[in-house]
């Protein structure tokens, strides 16, 4: 039995250590240098960092190569800039919506559990609709991937749902700093926290902590997120 962190492949967070250790609190501001995913956040604000402190600048410079690579990757797969981020998010939401659709049809759940799953599925469908509309405004909409999920029994489905939601929340968090348009950032944040809500409840249902990362949620970058969802994509 793998633990959740192994399954989602998230790295230990610098921010978490900082909270536990007052001496390293200074690094709270330098988390951009701590993980590859946060590095994405750090360097994307370069053009706005006119009068940033020396600590911030240092971590920004340090991580700029990784960030550029990741930006290029995203651009080639999903589109440039905010469009790429929106299409990346849309791809994840397509998968989530399809998953819950399949779960509801599977007949594995009834009563309160079914109602909860239907509610989450409806949230995801609304995210899909909203992100499709936004992507359309910005350019080309990402194609909906064909997906297949293992639906063996209720427990493993709930575990997969929890994994997917924790990953989704981490994926949004991983992009927050890279979004240029404040309206799109605001919208992404309003989805991000809903994914966090889903993750918390599903974690609780499978007997895991509702705050598996502790007081500070960890981000995930595109590479690790796509690696996690790849097994479910058929085409």
């Amino acid at each position: 039995m793998t633990t959740k962190s192994e399954r989602t492949g998230r790295r230990p967070s610098a921010i978490e250590k900082i909270a536990a250790d007052p001496l390293s609190r200074r690094r709270f501001l330098a988390i951009g240098g701590g993980t590859a995913s946060a590095a994405l956040l750090a360097a994307c604000g370069d053009d706005e960092e006119s009068s940033g402190g020396s600590e911030t600048s240092a971590s920004t410079t340090e991580s700029s190569t990784t960030t550029q690579e990741m930006k290029d990757k995203m651009a080639s797969q999903f589109g440039e800039g905010d469009l790429g981020i929106v299409n990346y998010a849309l791809t994840l939401e397509y998968l989530e919506a399809a998953f819950y659709d399949d779960v509801v049809k599977s007949g594995l759940f009834k009563g309160d559990d079914l109602a909860l799953i239907e509610m989450i599925g409806m949230n995801e469908q609304e995210h899909v609709t909203a992100l499709e509309g936004t992507a359309k405004q910005l350019g080309d909409v990402a194609p909906e991937p064909k997906a297949k999920f293992p639906l063996d029994d209720a427990q493993s489905v709930l575990e997969l749902a929890a994994t997917v939601e924790n990953l989704g929340a981490a994926a949004y968090l991983g992009q927050a700093g890279a979004i240029e348009d404040p309206k799109i950032l605001a919208a992404a944040l309003s989805i991000h926290s809903v994914e966090g809500r889903h993750a918390a409840i599903l974690n609780q249902l499978i007997g895991e902590s509702f705050v598996p990362d502790g007081p500070f949620a960890k981000p995930a970058d595109m590479d690790e997120v796509l690696k996690q969802v790849q097994p479910f994509i058929v085409s």
């Binding site: 926290s193 966090g196 705050v211």
Partner: peptide, 8 residues
């Protein structure tokens, strides 16, 4: 962002 997810 990290904190708001935890609040959620």
């Amino acid at each position: 962002g990290s904190i708001v997810q935890v609040e959620a």
